[in-house]
Design a protein around this nucleic acid. Structure first.
Lengths: 347, 347
DNA sequence: TCTGCATGAGAAAACGGTTTTCTAGGAGGG
DNA sequence: CCCTCCTAGAAAACCGTTTTCTCATGCAGA
């Protein structure tokens, strides 16, 4: 009961239950020794009064704020939001809340946000970004709280979480091969990106050769252009593994305009599984999902363990990607779908 | 100096400066009375030690946490992220940090997050969502802290901020008319949405008649289908005002496939100015920007004023939209561009 | 010389909890 | 009957600030 102004203190609970504040505290936290009857009486009183402990007072003495900070330069949120969702999911039932701080690429802004979070005694910090081979513009290497990096480059000796792009890419290419595609090419982003290198390496490993790799921008426009090039010379491919969904969408659109059937003539796979792109392409794109939410969950779990003093092995951890099948590849491979946010094989 | 573990307390500052904690506190906060020399000595000591006050201790006594909560059910972040950026921008130099809580449409989850935030003594709450005519699945009407609604429906007597869709839509349609378009139609989303009704009302007001309004899903597919219908009967339009960018993209793609030139034959305007859609369309879409970041800034400012006890007039406030010109309309109207995140006319 | 008052600075009391230490009373043993 | 041990619960200390209250001191005016 009692929606009341929230101003009920443990003192009120104690006096209603006819015990001291100390006893009330112990009763509510299931610590200390007392008759079960007393404990119950206190708990009942607390419930009736709608008592909720003041987290600041509690945190002050426990030296814990039940708060963590998420620092990111991914202002668009493409990568950070799913990570955030995962973190939140992992921490909410521990009573931990998350400060989200977008710092663009501004070191001064980063410093300001970082200081604000440290002042608030965050239990830990998770750093996230928009590419895994760039550091945030703020140094997190000597903080009084633990730091976990998720989808951004961390300092030496840190705990870092990234997706296993190699595994994901291999699955994508093998999927194409399983469908009988023989001439598979790779159209991807600028090779200055570590993820581009990794996905390219996987592509070559899967097809067992050099293959054909085209680098360009991360844009639909580049997808179009790549098709121009590929269909303007020699034997056209029958399978295209794209570095991201935007490129893939450009590729699919260009093929349609050219009269090439997708997936009948050519199978196309994207990367990122960005719903807004992959889902709206005609036909919808089969794409590699980096499971960013899982990365977030893991990051949340780990930063909390570190905050509680548990030992965590430092280093880079790769979490598996998942191929999400839509219609751009054809064939009768097992279809997967999203169910309750988790990727599962369809029945 | 002193990156040191952050464990420096005001006590340390006081003893280094040779004063009591009370004096140290007053010196640092520019309150109380003391010689300028003493004040300076304390401040110097604080700087040398790298002292940063513990926000929990400070908040406990001041009954302020310098923290606000952002509650949203917009898990995709399309609307909430820009709002969040605005809030953060408005509050960061006041030392206020923001808890971001995604609650989907789950009342229980909403309750959990809300309680967690209240326990942490947030100074205020901003509620945000993905449509302005739906409430969050959690009741915020009798909270011990102020609430501001940004881009979601609030309770009676609350402070609510939304974009002025009417004004934005009128500008869009008038833009088409200024370009000489005579047969302007409106292709939009389901008319169960308040924003659809509002934009339709504006469309009719601007053209001064009933016009042609087609309702469908918020999807590219519907944009295609609408073009089929429009070109399958009677005189084809020469201007299309779309309810969102996805529909507009579908429209533009369908027109191109049909051999209709955009913008030469038909001008198209979108709504939302969602970069990933509007910018990648061929040609890029002229679109109405709802200035969500400005809404966020205003929400941040207002919730803080309320938290400080200042009076704020309740009611719904509409903030102006801005037409962002790209290439889908043609003509030589003044071009605008984004500069540093702010929309400005190009020189 | 004494009173009055402004001034600088310290001591102590909050804030709202948790944790440690202390105490009174009952049970059990010799 | 006395001593010890155990237990439930109270009392006190503490977390790191801010704020209020108190107290010297020095100087001006009577």
């Amino acid at each position: 009961m009692s929606v009341g102004g929230g101003r009920v203190r443990i003192y009120d609970v104690a006096s209603r239950a006819g015990v001291s504040v100390a006893t009330a505290s112990k009763a509510l936290n299931d610590t200390g020794r007392m008759t079960e009857e007393t404990r119950l009486r206190v708990k009942t009183a607390a419930r009736e009064l709608g008592f909720r402990p003041n987290a600041m007072a509690r945190g002050l003495i426990q030296r814990r704020s039940f708060t963590i900070g998420l620092l990111t330069n991914d202002s668009y949120g493409r990568f950070t939001l799913p990570v955030m969702a995962g973190i939140s999911e992992a921490l909410v039932d521990q009573g931990v809340s998350v400060f989200l701080c977008g710092i663009e690429d501004d070191p001064a802004l980063g410093r300001v946000h970082l200081d604000a979070m440290l002042d608030k005694q965050v239990d830990g910090i998770i750093a996230s970004g928009k590419r895994i081979d760039r550091k945030l513009p703020v140094d997190l290497s000597n903080l009084p709280v633990p730091v976990v990096y998720a989808f951004t480059e961390g300092h030496a000796g840190a705990v870092t979480l990234v997706s296993d792009d190699f595994q994901g890419s291999v699955e994508a290419v093998e999927h194409l091969m399983a469908l009988g595609r023989k001439r598979i090419v790779h159209v991807t982003g600028p090779d200055s990106f570590a993820s581009v290198k990794e996905r390219t390496r996987a592509y070559r490993s899967a097809i067992g050769g050099e293959g054909v790799v085209l680098h360009g921008a991360w844009s639909e426009h580049w997808g179009h252009e790549a098709v121009e090039r590929l269909w303007g010379q020699g034997e056209a491919p029958d399978g295209i593994f794209c570095g991201n969904d935007q490129i893939a969408r450009g590729v699919v659109d260009a093929l349609r305009e050219r009269g090439v059937q997708v997936p009948a003539d050519v199978s196309v796979v994207g990367f990122d599984n960005w719903e807004i792109v992959a889902g709206q392409t005609r036909p919808p794109l089969t794409s590699v999902d980096m499971n960013l939410k899982a990365i977030g969950r893991e990051a949340g779990r780990l930063v909390l363990e570190l905050a509680e003093g548990k030992p965590v092995e430092p280093g880079v951890r790769k979490l598996p990607c998942q191929l999400v099948i839509r219609e751009s590849c054809g064939g009768n491979a097992a279809v997967t779908e999203r169910r309750g946010g988790i990727l599962v094989p369809a029945d």
